[in-house]
Every structure is written in C-alpha cells, then in structure tokens.
Nucleic acid binder design. Structure first.
Length: 263
DNA sequence: CGTATTTGACCGGCGC
DNA sequence: GCGCCGGTCAAATACG
C-alpha cells in the first residue's frame, strides 16, 4: 500500500485563493473576437503559469471545433458552432458559468433526490484506503474553461482521455464528467458538463498542460471546419456581464510553443 | 484479452 | 463533530 505511487494532487478544480474556497466565480469572455489572436490557435492553449505564479492568474484558450459532422446533427443541425468563453479563475465577480455550487434559490429541482444515487449497498471488500501524499502540498494547475454549443458532451480535441468519474452537479440535471489524459505522464485533466441554463451548451474545463503532442498533428480539432455560419454567439449569452478579453489574455499568454516541457 | 467506461465508495475541505 | 459537497479511486463491467 505504501508503495503506491503518488496520488498526485487531488486538489484539482477548486480554487482556494484564500477567502472563499468554494466560491467559484468566473468571468468569461466571449471569444469570437480574441479568437483571432495568434496565441490561441497556436497550440490550443499553452498557459505559461510562470507568468503569474502558480496560485495567481492564468488562463488560456482553446480554439474549438464543434466536431459534429454526423453525430450531433440529429435534430438541430443548425447548431454545432463552436464558441468560446474563457473562464478565468480568480476573477472578481460575476458568478456564472459554474456557479452551481453557490446559487440555490432559484430553480432548485432535482438536486439530491433523483440525481444522487442512493448508495445503500456498502462494499465489504473496500478496506483499502486511498493513499495520500505525505504532507505534499497540492498545487493547482492552471485551468481554463469555455463553453461550446454542441450536443456532444465530450468534444474531441485531438487528445485521448479516460473518464475517471462522473458526479451529479448541484442544481443541475446534468452530470459532470471527469477525464484524464491517457498518456503516461501527462496529468492533464478535463471536466465536462452541460450548462444547467442552456442545455445546448457544454462547459469544458481544462487543467494543466499536456506534456506531449496531441494524437493528430497538434493543436485543437480541425477535422472539418464548418465553423461559424450564423451567429453562434447568440445563444451563448447567458452571462450577466462578460468582461473584455483584451488585456487579460494577451498579457499572460506567451507566444512560445510548448517545447520547453520538462518531463 | 486489453483497454475504456461505469459506478458506488471514499476522501478532504468547509460550513454549520 | 457531523454532514454536505466536490473530486477521485478502483472494482466491476462493457466494449473492441
């Protein structure tokens, strides 16, 4: 048991910047604009964490593709446009995107009853406990999120992911899926959930940087690009007040490719 | 048979 | 201290 390897950081998504640990407030920017930025389409997203410090600020952006040539077109094929909203951690206000954990006085529906599976069947064999790192400090990797209008939950991004968990989201009828990069030493994680407000939108959150190239070429999905025909942005406006992208991204993100990866 | 997913249990933090 | 909550593990299962 003790020979078990590091359980690595379990402190993954929550951002404990000091005060409110659970206060997941995000500000996102809608990105058809900054999508133009060269920094983005470069590699999908390379976030130089060093620029801000580990516990500071960092965000990236991934240019995404709807990837729904044959799958998502069932029903409304007009959709499928990929759009983005970058989520910045450690933002000041505007609780929105993933504010599932906070709000609770609105559409409170099936939160604990129907969605939560009643685990009344204890496993007798489960005596082994998950080992933990000895006094290991958990450092949160940079993470960023964006929303995509798609009927597919898990968008293809050129990497291979292994699903390692799924949980019901509070105040949301849709579950949240946890993925991890299948590569050996790559500890990039990914969280996918559907918006509780707009079910046609999925929220994808990445954490960490890949230590390798993606399977196909690199960069993000570019299978078919039938990107924006109409106004993909229209539907993505559930945030109360989106911030301006300028300054945020350009300031932090460095234009250098991920060739300096250790490991 | 190997690999990926499913799924309940478990864990650690926080709030009460 | 207990319960909630979000996240993760791992055994079982599904899938090729």
């Amino acid at each position: 048991m003790d020979g078990k390897e590091k359980m690595d950081s379990e402190l993954s998504w929550g951002f404990g910047d000091g005060g409110d640990a659970d206060n997941e407030s995000y500000s996102y920017l809608f990105g058809s604009d900054f999508k133009d930025s060269s920094i983005l389409n470069e590699f999908g997203w390379n976030i130089p964490v060093d620029s801000c410090g580990v516990s500071g600020c960092k965000r990236g952006f991934a240019d995404f593709d709807p990837i729904d040539p044959d799958l998502s077109r069932s029903g409304a094929d007009a959709e499928g446009e990929a759009t983005v909203a970058v989520v910045e951690e450690n933002s000041t206000s505007a609780s929105v995107l993933a504010s599932v954990s906070s709000s609770s006085s609105e559409m409170s529906t099936e939160t604990g009853s129907s969605t939560a599976p009643a685990a009344t069947n204890p496993a007798p064999d489960r005596a082994k406990k998950v080992g933990k790192k000895q006094g290991e400090k958990r450092i949160r990797e940079a993470r960023f999120a964006f929303v995509t209008k798609s009927e597919i939950d898990h968008l293809e991004d050129g990497y291979r992911w292994r699903k390692y968990g799924q949980k019901a989201v509070k105040n949301s009828p849709f579950p949240r899926s946890y993925y991890r990069c299948t590569n050996s030493n790559c500890r990039v994680k990914k969280r996918v959930e559907r918006s509780w407000e707009d079910s046609s939108v999925v929220i994808t959150t990445y954490e960490g940087q890949h230590t390798h190239h993606s399977s196909s070429s690199f960069g993000f999905p570019h299978h078919h690009h039938h990107q924006f025909h109409n106004n993909p942005m229209q539907l993505l406006q559930y945030p109360p007040q989106p911030r301006q992208p300028q300054g945020l991204l350009g300031d932090v993100i460095a234009p250098h490719p991920p060739s300096d990866m250790p490991n």
